[in-house]
Amino acid sequence: MLLVFEQLLNGLQLGVTLFLLSAGLTLIFGIMQVINLAHGSFYMIGAYVAATVTASTGSFLLGLAVALPVTALIGMLVEMSILRRLYQKEHVDQVLATFGLIMFFNELTRIIWGRQPLFMDVPVWLSGSVELIPGIPYPSYRLAVIGVGLLVALFLYLLFAYTRVGMQIRAGAGNREMAAALGINIKRLYTLVFGLGTLLAGLAGVMAGPILAVEAGMGESILILTFVVIVIGGIGSVRGAFVGALLVGMVDTLGRAFLPLLFRFLFSSATADGAAASIASMLIYLLMALILIWRPRGLLPTHS
């Protein structure tokens, strides 16, 4: 029973990390209609900048404070210089161009930082563990990740529901031409949205830095999961991304944790281990397929 609770926390933590990435991706896709494969690159940039600053100053918070604006800035520059030319193009062109960006950024990090993965540690004040329930220590840093993710979700909710910018973004997503006709500067809005999306990706990268290897190409392994999340949640919907991320995090974690146990009741142990490992890694894709059959536009599609 304790194990189930712990695994639920693990699922929540993975879900929240995925949310940080998918919120930005779904915003960009929903509002700008651009498939941005390079989203994972901004995650990587966030992690690299934070790791570098943390290593030279010794302060994780400073690393965070530098990495976020840097990532957002690079994101906005990429939007202004490259993506802006792609809005009117086919999705294939966008996919090709942003795939090129992935290779560009991966190679750039190799040129700047070398091939060796960087080191980034948990800040000292978060390095312990907390016993939420007696007997099961849970790393404080993972709790902090959950906290940050939930705060971001709250912030995005407030931003969209109650602020002028949020309203403009929603208007831009709903009907681009009408919003422009009403005097909203769509160009600037797009740059802002892209900056916000990449900022969130950078934040996810910074938060992942102490848990994961900071290395060139780290964005691609998580990008696929992120796409699964936004497809499940409904493309363009931040609320959908939230629900989808938690669902994917939970299903993935619980599947990896409990499928082997379940299978061991049914088959001999050798078959069970192999089969469970294979099915656990397919589980989220099965989930996606089932949800798409049930609700072809995702769980919480946008209105447009």
Binding site: Q13, R256, A257
Partner: peptide, 21 residues
């Protein structure tokens, strides 16, 4: 116990909790 994980997996929290158990 003998556990096989996804190739290129990044999060091992679930495996670590099962391992502890």
């Amino acid at each position: 116990g003998e556990v096989y994980t996804k190739l290129d997996q990044s999060d091992y929290a679930a495996e670590i909790a099962t391992l502890r158990a």
